[in-house]
Structure formats: structure tokens, C-alpha cells
Simulated scan of single mutants.
Amino acid sequence: MTASFSGSDSPVSASTRSVESYQASRFGRWLLAFGLGHAALLLATDVLAAYGVISLVIGAFLLRRSDRALITWSAIGAALLTLLLISGIAFASAPADPAAMGPTPATASGAGDENYLIAGISRITTWLVLTCLTTFGLTAPVAMLLGIWAARRRILEEPHRHLPLLRRTAIIGITICWLGSLPAALVQIGAVPEVNEAALWALQWPTGLAGGLGYVALFGLLANRISRRAKPSRAITAISAVGKRSLSCYLTHSLIMAPVLAAWGLGLGAHLTNATTACFAIGLWLITVAAAYWLDRRGRRGPAEHLLRRLVYRN
């Protein structure tokens, strides 16, 4: 839908703009509602609500602006993220303060509570904080603005026309992302002593944006190569089916993982190691791939996508 908003560079009729702006607003509000339900019932780290809020803000102020406006605001956000990255590097060597570490992820997310209702209070509280951080943390808004710009130029729809840009973005973005994640990975495996947690966040948020852009560019390059084949393999078709049903797959992961791993459910999360957790996650992902492929073969949307589309376009 964002590709149809062409801004002042390619104006559309006022009536079309009005309809599309109204639909974008409905999409943001319903995505926010989906996120609230998701967090209240299952997962404190829901991202749907933040995407809904950001969509509402961008839809109201920037969606119909020119490409130059999108790039300008993206550059401002990237500059602020660069300052955050510099501060993260400066404070990374500061000793960790155990008293300032705050609650553990299990406590904050409610996964460690055996009472489902009490866990729900923790989930909502954490969700509100994380939604604000994601909304105002600049990474997601900048990514969305650049996504609108890329959609207008059909960079991913026609990757063969933008191969140099995609190659540079993939190499630079993924390299920056890996370098930004390296300190946290070294801490996780015990290769280096504990460092300031806030510094790790300051390192990963800006470099995560670069990584997101890099991986999107990499997928665009892969899509360009795959498109040359006469017929894509079943594996490619299955993974593409997951992308078309990403909302349903995302919610399915929570629907299975939360009751199985949380203390208010089966509580298996307290007994899994890093290796067994990875095996569990991969197995669950493969199940969703198989389900998405099954739906794709029958020409059906994912249930969440079907519901969201009906709510947004019901009129």
C-alpha cells in the first residue's frame, strides 16, 4: 500500500490520496489493537503496536511528502542514531553495575510468574515501555521512511535496475551490524567480562538499522538471481509463503512458545539450554514454514492477514 503513495514527485488525485490516507490510518489503529491483544495475552515484547503508532505518525505527516522530505528526515534520524552509537562506544568500557541492571527479562516479561493474571500485568507494563522505546528509538521510524522511499522507486520490485545500490547496502549494512553485535555476543559466551548493558543497547540499536537495510538488500539480490530461473524450488516457494503470511507466523510463534516456555504454562524455558532452545526455535519455524506453504498451495491468505485486511478495507 505504501508504494501507491507517490508524494509530490508523482502526484495523484486528491480523492485517491484521501482514501489511501484513511486506509493507512485504519491500518495503524488496527495494528495497534493487534499489538495490545498480543501483549496482554502472550508476549510482552510485541512490536506490532509500535509499528501501528509509527504508521499513524508517518501517515499523518510524511506519507504524502516528497522523496526529498523522506530522505531528509531519515538523515536526521540516522545522525541522531550515530550520536547514540558514539556514546555506546564511549561507555562500553565502563564497569557494569549489578545494582543498575534492573529486572531480568523473565521477570519483566512475566514469563517467570506462575500466575497467568499477574504475568499479564508484567507483560502490559513491559509492553508499554518497549512500545515507547521502539516508537521513539528512531530505528523503526527511519527504517519505515526508507522503506517508503524504496517502494516508490520499486527497488525491491525491480532489483535488476538497482544492483550496485543493493550490493553496497548489503556489504556495508551487514558488516556494521555484525560489528555492533559482536560485544554482546562475546559477553553472552563469557569471552569478555560483563560490560555496561546500556552501552550494549546503544551499540546495537544504530547498527541494527544498518543490518536491517543490509539484509533487505541481500534478499533483493537473491530475489534477482532466483528470478532468472524458470521455476523456483519448493524451498524458495515455502520461504516466500512465510513472507506473505508474516503476521500469522509471528503470532503463531507466540501462541506456541509462550505457553510452552513460560512459568504460567509448561515452564520448559527454565530447563532448556542455549542449544536446546535453538533447536526448539528452529523446529517451530519449520512448522510455520510448512503451514505457510500448505496455505500458499491452496491460494489462501494467513488467518491474521485475512482478518486485518477485512478490518482495514471493510468499507
Results as ranks from 00 to 15, higher is better:
Gly35Lys: 04
Ala100Lys: 13
Leu286Met: 13
Ala150Asp: 06
Ala191Cys: 02
Tyr313Trp: 14
Ala235Trp: 12
Leu221Phe: 01
Ala202Gly: 04
Val19Tyr: 01
Ala238Arg: 11
Ile71Asp: 04
Glu197Met: 08
Cys177His: 15
Tyr250Asp: 05
Arg297Tyr: 00
Arg26Phe: 05
Gly173Leu: 09
Arg64Glu: 12
Gly59Trp: 11
Pro183Arg: 04
Gly190His: 04
Ala44Ile: 06
Ser181Asp: 07
Trp73Ala: 02
Gly35Val: 10
Arg301Phe: 11
Ala143Lys: 00
Val142Ser: 02
Leu133Ile: 13
Ala39Ile: 01
Ala281Met: 13
Trp201Phe: 10
Leu247Thr: 11
Pro193Met: 04
Val187Pro: 05
Ala291Val: 15
Leu138Tyr: 02
Ser87Glu: 09
Leu80Glu: 06
Ala278Tyr: 08
Ala90Cys: 04
Phe280Asn: 04
Tyr293Ala: 15
Glu194Met: 13
Ala291Phe: 12
Tyr22Asp: 12
Leu85Glu: 00
Ala191Asp: 06
Ala69Cys: 10
Thr139Lys: 13
Tyr116Phe: 15
Ser4Lys: 14
Tyr215Lys: 00
Pro206Trp: 09
Ile176Ser: 03
Thr139Gln: 14
Pro193Asp: 10
Arg228Pro: 02
Ala96Asp: 11
Thr72Tyr: 12
Ala50Met: 07
Leu266Ile: 13
Ala99Cys: 03
Ala151Trp: 14
Ala238Lys: 07
Arg65Ala: 13
Ser254His: 13
Ala281Tyr: 08
Asn315Leu: 10
Asn274Val: 15
Ala170Arg: 04
Gly112Asn: 14
Thr126Val: 02
Gly302Gln: 07
Gly243Ala: 03
Asp9His: 09
Gly265Thr: 02
Ser93Ile: 01
Val312Gln: 05
Ala170Tyr: 03
Leu145Arg: 01
Ala290Glu: 06
Thr175Asn: 01
Arg65Gly: 08
Arg310Glu: 04
Ala238Asn: 13
Thr125Ser: 15
Thr276Asn: 11
Leu308His: 03
Ala119Glu: 01
Ala111His: 05
Val242Phe: 03
Ala33Leu: 15
Val142Asp: 05
Pro103Val: 10
Ala99Glu: 12
Trp294Tyr: 14
Arg168Gln: 12
Ile155Glu: 02
Thr252Lys: 01
Met1Asp: 08
Thr82Ser: 13
Leu268Gln: 10
Leu261Tyr: 05
Ile155Pro: 12
Glu194Pro: 05
Ser10Lys: 12
Ser13Pro: 08
Ala150Arg: 01
Arg68Met: 05
Leu247Phe: 15
Leu133Cys: 02
Leu166Val: 06
Ile76Ala: 14
Trp294Pro: 00
Ala108Asp: 09
Ser109Pro: 11
Leu200Ile: 15
Arg161Glu: 10
Asn115Asp: 15
Phe27Gln: 08
Ala170Pro: 11
Cys279Val: 15
Ala198Met: 10
His38Ile: 09
Thr237Phe: 01
Leu165Ile: 09
Pro193Cys: 04
Arg29Ala: 14
Thr126Asn: 10
Ala217Tyr: 06
Thr175Ala: 13
Gly243Phe: 13
Leu146Cys: 06
Pro193Tyr: 09
